[in-house]
Computed example of a mutant assay.
Amino acid sequence: MLEQAADALDRQDYHTAAKLIAMLSAERPDDPQVQLYAAKLQEATDRLDEALPGYRLAIQQAVNPKIIAEARKGIERIEQIQAQNQANELAIAQAGIEDRIEPGFLVLEPMSADHKQATFKQFATIMNLDPYSARLQLPSRGWRLYRVGQMGQLNFLRDRLLKAEIPCFCVSQQDTQQVFVFQVNHLKSFHPQATIVCTDDRSELRTFNFDWSEVTQIVTGMLPIFEEVMEIDGRNRTHRKSKILDYVNICDIQLRDRRTIFRLCAQTYDFCDYKQLITQNRHSLTSEPSARTSADLGGLLNGQRIPTTSRDNWKNLISQITEQISAHQTQSNFNPFAETAIGYPELLQRIDPHLELLRRADSLWDRAFHLYSTLAMCRDRDAARL
């Protein structure tokens, strides 16, 4: 029957070949010769996605050098066809989107381990990678800034990835720049509206009011503070080394419809407004204000002890903000994205971080956070349009 199946394949009688190979596969499912013929039939009938794993299975099972050689030739043929098809599709896509030459970003979204296992081979084919590299490049913890290029090409790749059920999105660089960013000095009130005091790009103080229902999401992150330190090695020699000495908390309040971001920073936020707040809330204190010392007034607000450290103050502030919005409106997985974005230093150098921290030198992490936050706003906007 093997000879009959081979003869039918040679004669391109695929109907007969399919019947014979189906019977052989039922009788001898582990026979590499049968697996080879099945893959050849799938290749001949344009089922390349099924033929490729069939050839690979034949190589794994076979000991006969002739079978292994034929299977490898089949894999090479399919890979060449797929590469040519992808090039043709790209050429057609580029011909139809000549106006989309502006720069942009392709971002891969995190996937579960099972999802990665099911899609990494398709990802390898789309991106022309070997399967091992493809598996490593699919993210599992957070966003991955995967490619920077022209929007026409990125949109083409995005569509192919989404078709393969690989979550991703594209955003043009222009869209990330069309956002107003204000550095927050302090929040004057939370109710009935939020009143926020901030500085604009010209370092001028401005005051804004907004309803919490306008907040579409908040984006949080921690920026490392690098410092040069002296270390002594085992031979008692000193060396200069850059180390992370601390982290600075950042929180962006995003109002998508206004295309506005209010950026709060733990290092620059004004936490010194307590006496004024206490004066406004004296009626909440249990005893007469005159009976309290300045130290008491400096430590109580609404009958509760005010946090005394910057970390506690920040935690309390963010808690008050997050109480105003739902949990799904928080984007807080910045670090995995930053680890990939740092690989594009020339890109990040052109980004204004809209942030002024007390440090010896600028950091690419500040710029990466701004990119992360604006991408999140654009991603949220596109999702709202669907």
Rank of each mutant, 00 (worst) to 15 (best):
D46V: 00
K40D: 05
L136C: 07
W143N: 03
S290P: 03
A338V: 07
I218W: 02
A26G: 10
A5I: 01
H239W: 14
A58Y: 03
L375A: 12
V171L: 00
Q153T: 11
R305V: 08
R367V: 06
E109Q: 14
Y37S: 09
Q174G: 02
R100D: 09
E356M: 08
S172C: 06
E27F: 07
I261N: 05
D49N: 13
H283Y: 14
L52A: 01
D352Y: 11
L348F: 08
R367H: 06
D233M: 10
A134N: 03
R240D: 11
S133A: 12
P131Q: 05
Q178I: 04
R360Y: 14
N128D: 15
I97S: 14
D31V: 06
L355M: 10
E3C: 06
I261C: 03
F271V: 10
N335G: 15
E109G: 06
E288S: 13
L371T: 01
H283L: 12
S140M: 11
I75Q: 06
A51C: 03
G74R: 02
E109N: 09
L223I: 12
K275S: 12
A8G: 00
P65W: 12
A91D: 06
T260R: 11
L358F: 13
R141P: 09
S319M: 08
A327Y: 15
A5K: 00
I101L: 11
L317P: 02
I321N: 00
Q324S: 05
H354Q: 12
A26K: 15
T16D: 02
L285T: 03
G234T: 08
I75R: 02
A361L: 11
A124M: 01
S25R: 11
P353F: 02
M127D: 07
F190V: 01
T374M: 07
D273H: 15
L277I: 09
R77D: 06
I351Y: 04
A361K: 15
L41Q: 02
H283M: 14
E98L: 10
I218Q: 07
L300W: 07
L108Y: 03
D352K: 08
I97T: 14
Q331H: 15
L347Y: 13
T125A: 10
S287Y: 11
L264E: 01
H239D: 12
L355I: 08
D200I: 05
Q178A: 06
R305T: 12
Q4E: 08
P32F: 06
R202W: 05
A341K: 01
F169K: 03
T268G: 04
R160N: 07
T119G: 00
A69N: 13
L90A: 13
E323K: 09
F120H: 09
T16N: 02
W143E: 06
M1R: 08
Q320D: 04
I68A: 09
E323Q: 09
K40A: 09
A118R: 05
A194D: 00
Q60H: 09
G104T: 00
E339G: 07
N236S: 13
L106R: 02
S326I: 11
D13E: 04
I92N: 13
H239L: 14
S133P: 02
Y269F: 13
D175C: 08
P131V: 09
Q122N: 14
A95S: 13
Q267I: 07
A291R: 10
D7Q: 12
